[in-house]
């Protein structure tokens, strides 16, 4: 059992393996499925979350290491899409299939929290989008 703080809510996560990646705890144990599985080897970025404000890839982040830290997932930005990154994404009609976009948005928010604005955010965005929405991500990021 691990005590996790996700989006300001305290959860008791019933898992036994300390090395279980946070991704699978979020998805299969806590039911927070906005964070996506893409590669499991920290290459694609679909699982991006913020941990104590830092961009982390939850597919390789042990649940035991997340205890005592503040975890923010896509669900923690705004359920009503009122967060600036979400608004920019909708304004620029970025998503196609949308599967990578939770991670893309969290990576963008991580870059903003690290002090980057507008085009400075772009080099921080290395996540993979197979639909190829990058051109619209550029348009959206410009406004942030």
């Amino acid at each position: 059992m691990y005590t996790l703080n996700v989006n300001g809510v305290t959860y008791q996560a019933n898992v036994t393996d300390a090395e279980t990646p946070l991704l699978w705890v979020l998805r299969d144990v806590l039911g927070l499925t906005g964070t996506k599985y893409g590669c499991g080897i920290e290459v694609c970025g679909a699982c991006t979350v913020l941990i104590d404000g830092q961009v982390e890839h939850s597919c390789v982040f042990d649940v035991s290491s997340a205890v005592g830290k503040k975890i923010v997932t896509i669900e923690g930005l705004s359920a009503t899409n009122s967060h600036p990154v979400q608004k920019a994404w909708i304004q620029c009609q970025v998503p196609q299939c949308g599967y990578c976009q939770s991670g893309m948005i969290m990576a963008t928010e991580g870059a903003r929290r690290a002090g980057h604005h507008g085009n400075e955010i772009l080099p921080e965005l290395k996540n993979v989008c197979v639909c190829g929405t990058y051109e619209r991500i550029r348009r959206a990021v410009k406004t942030l």
């Binding site: 927070l32 499925t33 906005g34 964070t35 997932t73 896509i74 669900e75 930005l77 705004s78 359920a79 009503t80 899409n81 979400q86 994404w89 909708i90 009609q93 970025v94 998503p95 949308g98 976009q101 939770s102 948005i105």
Partner: peptide, 8 residues
């Protein structure tokens, strides 16, 4: 698109 930007 909106459900694809908030995880829902």
């Amino acid at each position: 698109i909106p459900p694809k930007t908030n995880g829902s």
